[in-house]
Each structure stands twice: as structure tokens, then as C-alpha cells.
């Protein structure tokens, strides 16, 4: 079936895309402002706020903390999610379906509901405003992406390859390492990138489970906006945007090349 969109449809699509994207792009010119408060540049583009960001200990620490928690959480989510998909690979049944549904639940629950729940639970468990607490939140947020992408890749993998490997003398672990994991390598990487990006900019829950101690970027940005309107916020937003975009590009690259199916992610 071939379908050629008319000029009207293309125009409409562009308008919708612009509506979705342009507001977030406003941070980019704002980060180059030559004034001292959050605004668009008046006379010239200036890098002064980038310099200030680089010099500011607190912002740098936030940036590193966010990067650190996101990387740690994405790594954990990738290991757990991949193990989950492999464990349930090719098994069907009511309980299995329930289990899969539970892992994907964070995608469906409204952010604010999850945030409230996490806030109450984390306070009880003593995880409120701790790095561990933030990492656990990001793991939960990233896990569904890893599960979706890796189980889609496994569904494409011929299960007799596992039998072949075992008939050739390889035990289950070696078969996992030499046959299963290499076949879904691209999808695991894509899942990792998606988990990284989603953890990196998870804001709602993060705001609820952090306070004064754990100043990850969303927390720090929120606080800065509340107490003053420092244009460094625009700089940070631009950097976050750039990094997220880079992550998405890496994901697209991998899913195009390898076994990962973009429509499933």
C-alpha cells in the first residue's frame, strides 16, 4: 500500500510538530542572552552564562550527580530488564502476562500518582532525599523501555539457536553469552539509551523524593526558578536538551542497524 500525503496533511503535521517542539527550543536562544536575568538576547549573543555555569560549583555538582544517577540507574535497569525478558522468553501463560504487565506499569501510571506513592513509600523506607532513592526511581522509570525493546528483539530470535548451541556442547550460561546476548546486542544498547534518557529527565517523581541534599538537575532547576530567575537555568536546559537529543539519535542509529524495532520502542 502506498500513501502520498497531500500538502495539507504535511502542513498540518509540521504545525503540530512545531507546537510540540518550539516551546522547548525557547531555552536555546534564552541561554545566549546578554542580560542578567532570564530573557531572550537583546543586542548580542553572549556566552557569559555558559561561563558562569562552568564556574559554578553547585551547578556542576548537580550536573555530575544527575549524570551519575542516570548512568547507574540505566545500567541497573538494562541488566534487570534484559534478564527479565530472557527469563520470560517464549513462556506464555496468565501469570507471565501479569508479570509483564507489572513491569510495564510505570509507563501507564500518571506521573503525579507515582510521585505521591513514591514520596510516601520512600519516606517510610528512609530513602527520601537519598541518592539511592533517586536511582531506584530512575530504575523503575527506565525498566519498561528495556523490557519492551529487548523482548521485541527476542521475539525475532529463533529459539532453535539455543538448542543448537546446547547440542554443540555449550551449557546454558555459555549459550546466553555467546548466542542470545550477541543476537540482541543492539536492542540492549537501545534499551540502555532509552532508560538513560528517561531517567536523566525524570522530573515529577524526582521533585517529590528529593529535598535539600540530593540536588539532581531537575531539583536544582526547579529551586532556581522558584527562588530567582537565573539565566543559567536556560543553559542547563539547553545542555539537557542536547544530551537527550544525542541519546535519541544513538537509539535511532542502533534500532535502524540492529535487531531492535523502533515501532516497539
Amino acid at each position: 500500500m502506498t500513501y502520498r500525503p497531500t500538502a495539507w496533511i504535511v502542513g498540518l503535521a509540521l504545525v503540530v510538530a512545531a507546537f510540540l517542539i518550539v516551546p522547548s527550543l525557547i531555552a536555546i536562544p534564552a541561554s545566549f542572552t546578554d542580560r542578567t536575568y532570564l530573557s531572550l538576547p537583546e543586542h548580542t549573543f553572549s556566552l557569559q552564562h555558559y561561563k558562569r555555569f562552568a564556574a559554578d560549583q553547585a551547578w556542576r555538582r548537580s550536573f555530575m550527580l544527575s549524570a551519575g544517577t542516570a548512568l547507574t540507574a540505566a545500567t541497573i535497569a538494562t541488566v534487570l530488564g534484559t534478564a527479565f525478558s530472557i527469563g520470560l522468553w517464549g513462556i506464555a501463560g496468565r501469570w507471565i502476562g501479569l508479570l509483564k504487565g507489572m513491569v510495564l506499569l510505570p509507563l501507564a501510571i500518571p506521573g503525579i500518582v507515582a510521585a505521591l506513592a513514591m514520596y510516601l513509600l520512600w519516606t517510610k523506607l528512609g530513602l527520601y532525599d537519598t541518592v539511592t532513592g533517586v536511582i531506584l526511581v530512575q530504575v523503575a522509570v527506565g525498566l519498561p523501555f528495556v523490557v519492551i525493546v529487548t523482548s521485541a528483539a527476542l521475539a525475532m530470535l529463533d529459539a532453535t539457536q539455543v538448542k543448537a548451541s546446547r547440542s554443540l556442547g555449550a551449557g546454558p550460561w555459555r549459550t546466553l553469552r555467546r548466542v542470545v546476548l550477541p543476537s540482541i546486542r543492539e536492542s540492549i544498547l537501545a534499551g540502555f539509551v532509552l532508560a538513560l534518557v528517561s531517567g536523566w529527565d525524570e522530573s515529577v517523581i524526582t521533585l517529590f523524593v528529593t529535598g535539600r541534599n540530593v540536588q539532581v538537575l531537575p531539583r536544582k532547576i526547579w529551586d532556581s526558578l522558584r527562588y530567582d530567575i537565573d539565566p543559567i537555568v536556560a543553559v542547563v536546559a539547553t545542555l539537557m536538551l542536547a544530551l537527550t537529543l544525542a541519546g535519541v539519535l544513538v537509539f535511532l542509529l542502533f534500532s535502524k542497524r540492529g535487531g531492535g524495532r523502533p515501532e516497539a520502542g
Partner: peptide, 10 residues
């Protein structure tokens, strides 16, 4: 040695 239906080459 086993030769599978569909061969199952890696």
C-alpha cells in the same frame, strides 16, 4: 551432533 529443521545457524 544435531542438524535442526531450519538449520539454526548463528
Amino acid at each position: 551432533g544435531v542438524v535442526f529443521q531450519g538449520y539454526a545457524l548463528f
